[in-house]
Design a protein around this nucleic acid. Structure first.
Length: 422
DNA sequence: TAGATATTTCCTGGTT
DNA sequence: CAACCAGGAAATATCT
């Protein structure tokens, strides 16, 4: 599990923190192409991320990929950020002494960090974009919004914490109201009432992650058990008997275009390290080299490498804990589409109502799919073959004459406006 | 453990 | 010519 503290460390580490950046680079050759991809990134964190990028591309002009409009001097150095690294005896930060309405961005960040640590939330699932707001903004967020932003578990916890904090001050009860112990008691009650706040069943929608854990972490349960409750709210069960969104959210975050930093995609695992591959220079080169290498191979899928580098163990422990049912390609595609805010320009709807969509960055999507399936040699060519198989099953319908355009068929679910709510 | 299912890989040939 | 599209064939991984 990527902890909050680990996340913050990773953010500052010269690390291939965002494989998506690589995708972008490979498609466009220049890291500066990532410019707009992070336009929603937090301003505070963006500085941290920019530093990481600067480390990644020391010889390049630092791309302004995070649209930093933050005033000079506002960068929150890690040393300024107080957060507890220990879950049980987590100490609240300075935010605890301040009316939430008055919280600075940093207070909010600390507050989120506190709860991430306390709930043992996997910080790799955090969408840091959502962490950049001041207290006033935060106080306007409804419970639902918080849940949407941070997932059911953490969102709920944040909501309750925020309400508690608000109550302490808004009703002028800060001194005479709930004591810390009472608050603890309240917390306990809340936790008993909402046991999912803690533990492995954490919330959804936190796919967008811009860092990756530097080591494979044993977070398999979290990785594969998310979102069950939330997903049932969002999209109906697949006709095909999969926990479609559940899986897909995982896909989103585990594989992820949205979450390049998932354990599955960790550069230290079986996948070749993207940062060290020719792939970093060009998808094309990468694919070509791959095909050269595999030229002599027979047909069909080669057996999975039984490597001896520790990854197998990692995978096995993962599978034995929570054998995932395969997230299906069409669900993976659908979930990219139905989360436009996190779609990163990979795909777009051509006709939202009719379910017509288009690949904008076909190779990047393929790579992400491959990443999810732990297959670094995935290409759009192969992905599209799998897509074509869906025609027969009427999960997809043909769209003739239009390149990279597909349409959901009657056997696909979860993409319709009525189902997604937007 | 066998069979079914869902890809994955490779390939040939056609189209944009 | 590159990038796609169509599908056949065969192989693997995973699930039932």
């Amino acid at each position: 599990m990527l902890t909050w503290s680990r996340l913050l460390v990773d953010l500052t580490w010269p690390h291939p923190f965002c494989q998506f950046a690589h995708y972008k680079c490979t498609e466009t050759k220049l890291p500066s192409a990532t410019t707009t991809e992070f336009s929603m990134a937090s301003t505070d964190l963006s500085l941290i991320l920019n530093n990481a990028i600067a480390n990644l591309y020391p010889s390049e002009q630092q791309p302004n990929m995070l649209s930093t409009t933050v005033p000079m001097g506002r960068s929150p150095h890690l040393s300024e950020i107080t957060f507890s690294s220990n879950n049980n005896n987590a100490m609240a930060g300075s935010w605890d002494q301040v009316n939430p309405q008055m919280w600075s961005r940093q207070n909010v960040l600390e507050w989120i960090g506190f709860h991430v640590e306390e709930s043992r939330f996997d910080a790799s699932l955090l969408n840091m974009n959502y962490c950049d707001m001041d207290g006033i903004t935060l106080c306007t967020l409804s419970k639902e919004t918080l849940i949407n932003m941070f997932g059911l578990g953490l969102g709920n916890q944040l909501h309750h914490s925020l309400e508690s904090q608000k109550a302490r001050y808004a009703a002028d009860m800060s001194e005479t109201g709930l004591s810390d112990s009472e608050l603890d008691l309240l917390d306990n009650i809340l936790q008993n009432s909402f046991p999912y706040i803690h533990g492995p069943s954490l919330g959804p929608l936190l796919e967008t992650v811009v860092v990756q854990p530097s080591l494979p972490t044993d977070n398999s349960e979290n990785t594969y058990s998310y979102f069950d409750e939330y997903t049932s709210q969002l999209t109906p069960e697949s006709d095909h008997g999969y926990d479609s969104l559940t899986e897909s959210f995982q896909s989103s975050h585990t594989g992820s275009f949205l979450n390049p930093s998932s354990p599955e995609s960790n550069s230290s695992d079986s996948d070749p390290d993207y940062s060290e591959m020719p792939y970093s220079n060009s998808t094309k080169n990468f694919v070509k080299q791959e095909s050269v290498e595999t030229k002599k191979r027979g047909r069909g899928r080669p057996p999975k490498p039984r490597d001896s580098e520790g990854y197998e163990h990692f995978i096995q422990s993962k599978k034995s804990k929570h054998a995932p049912r395969g997230t299906h390609l069409w669900e993976f595609i659908r979930d990219i589409l139905i989360h436009p805010e996190q779609n990163q320009g990979l795909m777009k709807w051509e006709d939202r109502r009719d379910g017509v969509f288009k690949f904008l960055k076909s190779e990047a999507v393929a790579q992400l799919w491959g990443q999810k399936k732990k297959n670094s040699s995935m290409t759009y060519e192969k992905l599209s073959r799998a897509m074509r198989y869906y025609y027969k099953r009427e999960i997809l319908e043909r769209v003739d004459g239009r390149r990279l355009v597909y349409k959901f068929g009657k056997n696909s679910t979860g993409w319709r406006i009525e189902e997604t709510g937007y």
